[in-house]
Design a protein around this nucleic acid. Structure first.
Length: 101
DNA sequence: GCCATGACGACCT
DNA sequence: CAGGTCGCCATGG
């Protein structure tokens, strides 16, 4: 799988995350690990930073439920609007984490 | 090819 | 709960 195809796979998966639910960067990496031969949460973050604009990027958070520093405000607002379970400025992963399949 | 730098994460202090 | 360390994959200098 080429890097370009991997980017597409990541974006396609992010689009499937239901409103009010989230996936961590690591979970995305894990979900595509076998198919892609890669498994780096950091890489997924890099990809989201560059091509995340066209997908529901706010539904991808850190494993601790935090948002990227630059977009904390917007991401938090979007989640309040779609009813995501929040614990202060982070997502409550125990109830909001979503995984395909 | 070496090195620094990321929207990261598990683990330890 | 707040840092620091080290591994992770790709990119750009």
């Amino acid at each position: 799988m080429t890097p370009e195809e991997y980017v597409e796979a990541v974006l396609a998966l992010v689009e499937r995350i239901p409103p009010g639910r989230v996936m961590s960067y690591g979970a995305v990496a894990d979900a595509l690990a076998e198919k892609s031969g890669r498994n780096s949460a950091r890489l997924v973050g890099t990809i989201m930073a560059k091509h995340g604009g066209s997908v529901p990027w706010h539904r991808v958070v850190t494993s601790a439920g935090a948002f990227p520093r630059r977009h904390v405000g917007l991401a938090t607002a979007l989640h309040r609007k779609e009813g995501t379970p929040l614990r202060g400025d982070r997502v409550n992963m125990r109830s909001a984490a979503w995984f395909p399949g």
